[in-house]
Nucleic acid binder design. Structure first.
Lengths: 218, 218
DNA sequence: AAAAAGGTGTTACCAACGTAACACACGGAG
DNA sequence: CTCCGTGTGTTACGTTGGTAACACCTTTTT
């Protein structure tokens, strides 16, 4: 990737956008901003590694996953261009990545040193605000994730999804904009189990459904 | 609670500690810092409510819980004196509490208005640093929680706990400092199920155990 | 010392759900 | 048009783990 393409990319990220070109260039020159490239399927951070910089994805795709006892790998979260990594951990007293972070595609990442970041934060209220917003949004997603993993029965997960969609589509008749297969993946269950549970819910007169829509009856 | 007891409590919290008395008193006077008391078992925030202030627990106990389809209530997280609430959400573009927050004991809470907080943050680097540390620690705990809820089998949860304890006690012979009942609660399963799984793991020659210790064999 | 309370281990029973295998429908490629 | 890939619905089977009931033990209360 050409050097100035990178510069444009860097400048266009949400985090950096509120900085002056001078700030950006100074930080690049003295090594506080650094771009690292990863090949497809490289580990970026191991579980337990210390987190000492903020990372911003310039291009590519990054996933957080875990491997269970039987060796099955399973993806918890995906990050794309403009997403940040480590922002929520960075200033913790135990700044350890809690899970393995790796690139699923060729990925370019901008790294910002912790202390340099701190300097920028307290010298630039707009930058501070942006940063706080970003990590807050991040934490919100985390919270949502927990809420999601806490649903124990498939039916609960389905109802959760349906209620949300029903609100956002403002109708009890919910148009599925994704395939059932994708829905199953989204709520983290087998497709067949989803299928079975939907059938049961129809028996219980909770819903009606066809290939691309579901109607909430209660 | 007497007014000056409160002031001492406020002054002694991690967040506020790095502020000058003058800052504290000014903010109290103009209403940016406000103390609210809750009786035992009151709802502090409903699921979905907008979060517009940072809250610091001065005394009491606060829990985050959820109610499942069958009406069972189940606690996700507990907070005590000096813990903060909402810190990770506050500056999000969708600052909604993702779950119900309530007091489990009589509780006093210091509320700090978002904009007042922001003022303090960008005017006081030590305060900023402290705040970032706090919310980072918080996010770390969140991440850990996810990691925990993601363990699907009881055996995985147990092994997770044992490996952690084994490291921190620096021995394969792990002294249980809590009862098995408490351990079961900690990893979120029935006591009997824990008991059964421990027995199975012994059969599988993974562990040995007695009433107050467990030995990891692999 | 007797009684009450709470932790522990065990087991029969059952609901939830992942696995695997099969049938069918649809849309694009040859 | 046929063939293949992919999404979909169904079902038999097995595993995991929650429920409930009971026995045993230790500690605390009276």
């Amino acid at each position: 990737m050409a050097r100035n393409t990178n510069l444009n990319l860097i400048r266009s990220t949400t985090v950096v956008k509120s900085l002056s070109d001078k700030d950006i260039l100074t930080n690049i020159k003295n090594g506080n901003f650094k771009v690292t490239s990863y090949k497809k399927n490289s580990v970026i951070h191991f579980d337990g590694e210390t987190c000492s910089k903020l990372e911003i994805i310039l291009s590519g795709k990054v996933v957080v996953d875990r491997i269970d006892e039987s060796g099955d790998l399973f993806t918890i979260s995906e990050f794309y261009q403009d997403d940040i990594l480590g922002g929520n951990l960075l200033f913790s007293k135990n700044p350890y990545y809690p899970m393995t972070v790796s690139s699923q595609l060729p990925t370019d990442i901008l790294e910002i040193d912790r202390e340099a970041l701190f300097e920028l934060l307290y010298n630039n209220p707009i930058f501070l605000r942006t940063y706080l917003e970003l990590i807050s949004d991040h934490a919100f997603i985390l919270g949502d994730k927990i809420k999601h993993y806490i649903n124990k029965t498939i039916r609960e997960s389905i109802m959760n999804y349906l209620r949300y969609e029903s609100k956002s589509q403002n109708s009890n008749h919910i148009k599925l904009n994704i395939t059932k297969k994708a829905l199953a993946e989204k709520i983290g269950v087998q497709r067949t189990s989803l299928s079975r549970e939907l059938a049961k819910m129809r028996e219980d007169r909770l819903i009606l459904f066809d290939t691309d829509s579901i109607t909430l009856l209660k």
